[in-house]
Amino acid sequence: MSQPEFTVEDLKRILVEGAGADEGVDLDSDILDTGFESLGYESLALLETAGRIEREFGITLDDEVFIDNPTPRELVAAVNAKLPGSVAA
């Protein structure tokens, strides 16, 4: 049985849909360890992004999820840990 997975591609798509993209940042470069702030997203953009992840993947994220996970790599791991079938879920 295939398990749903949250990838960095999902994250980039949702960021752009909800908050657009900064022309000075190339989201297709290696951004995994670049902080969201450096990618041009302020707290409201991240709030919007968290809401979109929650409703698309049917999960609830902690209010502090972007504070505890300030880079795409950490956030992807944190979201996947919430998905059904993950060890942590």
Binding site: V16, E17, G18, A19, G20, A21, D22, E23, G40, L44, A45, E48
Partner: peptide, 8 residues
Amino acid sequence: LPGRLIPQ
């Protein structure tokens, strides 16, 4: 306008 401004 920049892409970051459009959705907001």
